[in-house]
Amino acid sequence: MSDTNAKLIYMANQIATFFQSQPAREAAQGVATHINKYWEPRMRRKLFKHIEHGGEGLNPLVLEAAAKIRRPEAAEAVINRG
């Protein structure tokens, strides 16, 4: 697990910790909306990659929210356009 991966997991879990304390029906959507609104695509891309590799260390609420997090375009496509 790279350093920045660890940071990303930490950040995602921090967000989950906040929404965990909110009414249960809003929690997962809260996490997803937050990440959609504030995370740049390469951060989300990394998050998905980590989840695909098992999502070790992630708060279960992040995993639950993943279905609602927007999947960014693939990285290659962006570079080609650059």
Partner: peptide, 18 residues
């Protein structure tokens, strides 16, 4: 239409090479 990097994220991305 996608949010960009914040300062700390920029620095992380820089260390990572992107």
């Amino acid at each position: 239409n996608e949010p960009g990097l914040r300062i700390p994220n920029m620095l992380d991305a820089a260390v990572e090479g992107t």
